[in-house]
């Protein structure tokens, strides 16, 4: 492969300057090309991401007309910016009249293969979880991913009880996943037979996510209601 005739290179060592110049030039040109493509595609990618989030939020709080992202950090609530901090991000959903109806928030828990990432919707009027959408997972196809398609399982989240306890410190009843066919309380998630681990992951994600977020959100409810989208 060191054939000089085909590569057209002289046998003697080229000057260091030439090597430096060629490398620099190629790097600069490459950098410029990447920056140009970045500048051109960035708005489109951001729009795609926004649409993806919007679609996800709308599936979990279907009758919301618009939503505003908020971030809750160290007991302060502020509208989320493009550079998210360490706080819990959530989306407050408003109806046509600008009334606060619910919120959507991301949560995750360890599943069978990897973490299962979900976004769940919560409604203030029934104080319940009204929808769960799996954003990202690595569960076994045909088994674990039934949590997305199984109608009976999805029906768990038509109105999953998530009332906040009277003292406002936690959920009144922790959300638990129970064995298939034994759901007896509105805060229980009926697992899929054969996909128990993934079902439990979703229940746990809700329990941890909603259990931490909802009691805090209640303190800022007035602030959220005053905020118009």
């Amino acid at each position: 492969m060191t054939d000089t005739q085909t590569t057209g290179q002289p046998l003697e060592k080229p000057s260091s300057l030439r090597m430096i110049v060629s490398l620099t030039l190629v790097s600069v040109l490459s950098g410029m090309a990447v920056v140009m493509v970045y500048l051109y595609t960035r708005p489109i990618i951001d729009e795609n991401k926004r649409l993806a989030i919007e679609a996800a939020v709308l599936t979990v709080i279907p009758d919301s007309a618009g939503f505003v992202p908020f971030e809750l950090e160290d007991n302060t609530l502020r509208p989320a910016t493009d550079s998210p901090g360490k706080g819990q991000l959530f989306y407050a959903g408003y109806d046509q009249q600008g009334q606060l109806i619910g919120l959507a928030a991301p949560a995750n828990a360890q599943g069978y293969a990897d973490k299962v990432y979900i976004i769940y919707g919560y409604r203030f009027d029934c104080e319940c979880i009204t929808g769960v959408k799996v954003i990202k997972h690595a569960e076994t196809p045909g088994l674990g991913d039934k949590v997305i398609t199984d109608k009976d399982f999805v029906a768990n989240f038509d109105a999953l009880d998530a009332r906040v306890a009277a003292d406002g410190s936690a959920l009144r009843n922790r959300i638990v996943t129970v064995k298939h066919g034994t759901k007896s309380n509105p805060w229980e998630v009926d697992a899929i037979s054969g996909a128990t681990i993934t079902s439990r992951a979703i229940g746990r994600a809700l329990d941890i996510g909603a259990g931490l977020l909802l009691p805090q959100v209640m303190k800022f409810r007035q602030q959220l209601e005053d905020h118009q989208p």
Partner: peptide, 22 residues
């Protein structure tokens, strides 16, 4: 220059990969 060709090739390839990625 022959001595820097691999580095140059990789930069070129990486550039196009980044483009495709975006």
């Amino acid at each position: 220059p022959k001595q820097t060709r691999i580095a140059v090739f990789i930069i070129i390839i990486a550039t196009f990969v980044t483009v495709v990625d975006y």
